[in-house]
Design a protein around this nucleic acid. Structure first.
Length: 426
RNA sequence: GGAGAGAUGGCUGAGUGGCUGAAAGCGAUCGCCUGCUAAGCGAUUGUACGCCCCAAAAGGUGUACCGGGGGUUCGAAUCCCCCUCUCUCCGCCA
């Protein structure tokens, strides 16, 4: 959520920034609603003030045995009026709040203007694409041939967009999770957390999934719980409604979770294989930072995520999302795209964002400065480090061999209990 | 699932209708004192929103907030109702 006072003072700027990301803001109704809120507020506060003063007089009069009937009758009327005003104030504030909740974040100045993903500039490429003396196979063929992936039975027990991992496939998924967690905790200094996979509505609103994107989420029927689409939600909300100590910043968390996405509106996209699933594993990096540090922290967070691919030996490129492709809550986002030989394309494997104070304002995450003891909103950041299912895909497709087996990347061998190749016989 | 108890500031904990934004203690910050440390003395120590002042900061002022929501009353931390969460006991259970 944007700062109400900032929006009020910079309406044209905010509207222009929103249009750059292809979003509209109704300046007129915002202004009139905001003005109305202040008008009512001033009136109701003046009346409350009067009531407070007179009520004290009533107390004094009664104590001294005098008659206060006149004042009491008068205040009865004032209280009734206050009640009326409070109701309309509540209505106006609710409307204004709902309006604020659906205004996306303002892109950072360094975010390039563009209409969509085709306009995202590449900031880095790493690694050499492997060459094959045959047509490299997509992971779903490799996986099913090796008996480590079973989409048919997944469809039988659950439905489309689910997968069953078995044998060395299940082991590989688990190895990737452990490898990533170890790297981020032991080398990059993140603190590991394991959180609930279901959260309440407030948490979803805190990080920006609600109210606007409810159709993308799974709701647990008969409860108020939603399945998390990413560990970003529970981990960021860990500090909701808290005032943090400046000395604890930058606070860095890493969390493995299953992620659940309804994938509404993606019919026909990536219907084969592991790329787009209703449930997948992800290792997520989350940071809470001081405002002046957050853009440096975004750079290091992105590099921390890239390090996973470097150690695995998977080629990738990193792009900056342009204004038209930027996510709702983000001020700036880098996408890391891994090379997938079987699909002959770079595919998104991580998305690293700085939300500035947008989520912090929604969720009430603040910190107190040590020197001035001023309270400010923190900046929140997060990024996949990495999407495990898609990393699984990248390993299969990049390390496939002519005989259909998969060479296990060096760094994963210890996590595979010494197995250095996945082949049919395993 | 059943029975009971509870939720107050950074923490502990008073407070059963007006003198309570909230006692006391602890902690923290600043100052004094002191060979060092400790102790001692003094002061300060919430958040949000509005208005005034204003380049801004600071300041002034008003309102709200004692788990959340609603009600009674001239007036609610305090009385009533609903909800959430925590604790204890019983039952069930990975």
């Amino acid at each position: 959520m944007l700062d109400l006072k900032f929006v009020r003072a910079n309406l044209d700027f905010v509207a222009r920034k929103q249009s750059e990301r292809g979003s509209d803001i109704d300046i007129e109704s915002f202004s009139s609603l905001e003005q109305k809120r202040r008008d009512i507020l001033q009136e109701v506060e003046a009346l409350r003030s009067e009531r407070n003063t007179v009520s004290k007089e009533v107390g004094t009069l009664k104590k001294s045995g005098s008659d206060a009937a006149d004042l009491i009758a008068k205040m009865g009327a004032v209280s009734a009026r206050i009640k009326e005003l409070e109701e309309s104030l509540k209505a106006v504030e609710g409307e204004l709040h709902n309006m604020m909740l659906v205004i996306p974040n303002i892109p950072h100045d360094s975010v390039p203007f563009g209409r969509g993903s085709e306009d995202n500039p590449v900031v880095r490429t790493w690694g050499e694409k492997p060459t094959f003396d045959y047509d490299p196979k997509p992971h779903w063929e490799l996986g099913e041939n090796l008996g480590i992936l079973d989409f048919g039975r997944a469809a039988k027990i659950a439905g489309a967009r689910f997968a069953v991992y078995q044998g060395q496939g299940a082991r590989l998924e688990r190895a990737l999770i452990n490898f990533m967690l170890d790297l981020h905790t032991e080398v990059h200094g993140y603190r590991e957390v394991m959180t609930p996979f279901m959260v309440n509505r407030e948490s979803m609103q805190g990080t920006g999934q609600l109210p606007k994107f409810e159709e993308d989420l799974f709701k647990v029927s008969g409860t108020n719980y939603f399945l998390i689409p990413t560990a970003e939600v529970p981990v960021t909300n860990l500090h909701a409604d808290e005032i943090m100590d400046e000395k604890d910043l930058t606070l860095k968390y890493v969390s493995w979770s299953a992620c659940f996405r309804a994938e509404a509106g993606s019919y026909g996209k990536d219907t084969r294989g592991l790329i787009r699933q209703h449930q997948f594993n992800k290792v997520e990096l989350v940071k809470f930072a001081r405002p002046e540090d957050s853009y440096d922290e975004l750079e290091s967070l992105t590099l921390n995520a890239e390090e996973v691919l470097r150690r695995l030996g998977i080629p990738y490129q990193t792009v900056t999302l342009c204004t038209g492709d930027l996510g709702f809550s983000s001020a700036k986002t880098y996408d890391i795209e891994a090379w997938m030989p079987g699909q002959e394309a770079y595919r998104e494997i991580s998305s690293c964002s700085n939300f500035e104070d947008y989520q912090a304002r929604r969720a009430g995450i603040r910190f107190r400065r040590g020197d001035t003891s001023k309270v400010e909103h923190v900046h929140t950041l997060n990024g996949s480090g990495l999407a495990v299912g898609r990393t699984f895909v990248a390993v299969l497709e990049n390390f496939q061999q002519g005989d259909g087996s998969i060479a296990v990347p060096e760094v994963l061998i210890p996590y595979m209990n010494g197995v250095d190749r996945i082949s049919l016989l395993q």
